[in-house]
């Protein structure tokens, strides 16, 4: 306790003690104040409680449950037991290495595409849109009014073999070029890597645009003027002022795009082929079709570990703490 020289008889002092000041004639008063102060100190924790409970129930508990599953062995008939069998991990990597690779490749490509498409749009909305700003933002979010699945199914129609997109691209010989690059094949778009990347890009684009917009929108326009006043050409203003100041948005946007995209399986399932399956598809298959839970859990953990490492390296490189 706080009071070092306090006699033992005062042991009934208030728990969150206000120290030696609370002793004396006004003992009752003081303990009342102390209790109130104690309650006030606890308020933030009470506010944290719902979120904490939610996390404990739906993240921490499943996390440990899956962690233990990932080191089980056995079969569906005989039941699974924890045997600390790490071969689940090595087997998963050996069998599904290409899936992991594809996942990160597709997700990274989609993230870069999202950035390339999203940045100019976010810039336009933040600086040039004027009174159209609100409308444009609503349009960015508008796809969310339709379910993820339906939107992806719509892409199936758009990219279908008899569809107009394939027709136009074929007549322009674009498909020849992309098939040379290994992105498409057999004069089709559907069931190719390109289709999967397109789907991922489309579905995650708003997650890129919104953080970019919010970081660009916060930039004081007088900084642009100051840079121009200090001999910066418009291109240099962007390179030296606007872009560095939008980095927090770039980091947030790329993370919000890359992380869910690398775990996604809907796009690969609906728009891809067996040759374009991502790790999400493999996990889904193990969980729901093969019912090899330990293998599925092990794959989930490998995916999570890789993402965690990649993200922490990326965050350190981007140096976000240094930014405003």
């Amino acid at each position: 306790m706080t009071a070092t020289g306090a006699p033992a008889s005062e042991g009934a002092a208030p728990p969150t003690g206000t120290g030696p000041l609370s002793t004396g004639s006004a003992q009752g008063d003081a303990s009342g104040t102390a209790a109130r102060r104690g309650r006030r100190k606890l308020t933030p924790y009470w506010l944290l409680l719902p979120a904490g409970l939610w996390l404990a129930l739906f993240f921490v508990a499943p996390f440990f449950y899956q962690a233990s599953t990932s080191v089980q062995s056995g079969s569906l008939e005989d039941g699974f037991r924890v045997t600390w069998d790490f071969t689940n991990y090595s087997d998963a990597l050996a069998m599904y290495g290409p899936h992991f690779l594809r996942s990160f490749l597709y997700a990274a490509t989609a993230t870069v595409l999202c950035l390339l498409i999203g940045y100019p749009l976010a810039y336009l909305i933040a600086f040039r849109a004027g009174r159209w700003r609100g409308l444009l933002l609503v349009m960015v979010i508008a796809p969310f009014f339709t379910s993820f699945l339906i939107r992806t199914l719509a892409w199936k129609t758009i990219l279908s073999d008899a569809g107009p997109v394939v027709g136009v691209l074929k007549s322009l010989h674009v498909l020849d070029v992309t098939s040379q690059l290994g992105l498409t094949g057999d004069d089709r778009l559907l069931a190719t890597p390109l289709a999967v990347v397109c789907g991922l890009t489309y579905n995650f684009l708003p997650f890129m645009i919104l953080p970019l917009y919010s970081s660009l929108e916060r930039i004081d326009l007088s900084l642009h003027e100051a840079a121009r006043d200090l001999y910066a050409t418009p291109a240099t203003v962007f390179r030296k002022v606007t872009f560095p100041l939008s980095l927090p948005g770039v980091v947030a946007g790329t993370l919000l795009t890359f992380i869910p995209a690398s775990g996604d399986y809907i796009n690969a399932q609906l728009l891809g082929s067996p040759n374009t399956q991502m790790v999400g598809n493999a996990i889904q298959k193990q969980f729901l079709n093969v019912l090899d839970y330990p293998a599925a859990a092990a794959m989930s953990f490998i995916l999570m570990a890789i993402i965690l490492i990649a993200v922490s390296v990326y965050m350190r490189k981007a140096g976000t703490e240094e930014l405003v």
Binding site: S222, A226, R228, L230, Y231, A232, P244, L245, L323, V324
Partner: peptide, 29 residues
């Protein structure tokens, strides 16, 4: 255009570049 004028401005809210340190702000021009 402003970047071609041999004229510089001290802005009302200073408009210092928040991502650059003092020396780099001063060196910008």
């Amino acid at each position: 255009p402003p970047h071609k004028r041999p004229v510089n401005t001290v802005f009302q809210n200073y408009a210092l570049f928040p991502h650059l340190d003092v020396a780099e702000n001063v060196a910008f021009g």
